[in-house]
């Protein structure tokens, strides 16, 4: 009998498998990756999959796609124990945990609608990562709840 991971991972030829996602966050992970089904990327999702480590977890597999550092940074905020498996020729060629960054730039929108970064100015959003949430370096607003809702499209 193959393990849970092999069973779900081995079918992808090349691309990325994001495993050990906090249950319920799979769709938010897709949002971070900008995947909404309108492109031709092949995507599989497992939700509430039994996991020895987490009880249950979500898994996202994306064919032909690797992740940018910015995407990994935000991913780490909503799925702090996620593992990233880079697959080539049906095999895991690289496997790493997400790192919690000290700051994230250009990937989250400030929740303060009066913040200069939400206006039509040549400035990227920029957040300092706190133990519990993130903080806009421009207006100081602390965002703790529902970070995924603040992901820039």
């Amino acid at each position: 009998m193959t393990s849970d991971r092999e069973l779900r991972v081995s079918k992808i030829q090349s691309g990325t498998v994001i495993d050990h996602i906090t249950s319920g966050q799979a769709l938010n992970v897709l949002a971070i990756l900008g995947i909404d089904g309108t492109d031709d990327e092949i995507v599989s999702i497992g939700m509430n999959v039994p996991s020895d480590r987490l009880g249950t977890k979500d898994i996202v597999k994306v064919e032909g796609r690797e992740l940018s550092q910015g995407e990994l940074d935000v991913l780490s905020l909503i799925a702090p124990v996620a593992t990233i498996n880079i697959i080539r020729d049906y095999g895991v060629v690289e496997k790493h945990r997400v790192d919690r960054p000290t700051e994230v730039t250009g990937v989250l929108q400030c929740s303060n609608h009066n913040c200069i970064t939400t206006e039509d100015e040549p400035v990227d959003s920029h957040f300092e990562v706190l133990d519990d949430g993130v903080r806009c370096v421009y207006c100081d607003t602390i965002v703790r709840e529902d970070l995924a809702a603040h992901i820039l499209a």
Binding site: N112, N114, C115, I116, T117, E119, E121, V123, C136, V137, Y138, C139, D140, T141
Partner: peptide, 27 residues
């Protein structure tokens, strides 16, 4: 003086002369 929070911080990134924030929104 500008109505948006963070405006002075952003503006300062674009200038070399000293910039003084005289009030940025509720900031």
């Amino acid at each position: 003086r500008h109505p948006s929070e963070g405006s002075a911080k952003m503006a300062a990134e674009y200038v070399d002369v000293p910039l003084i924030n005289a009030g940025d929104g509720a900031g």
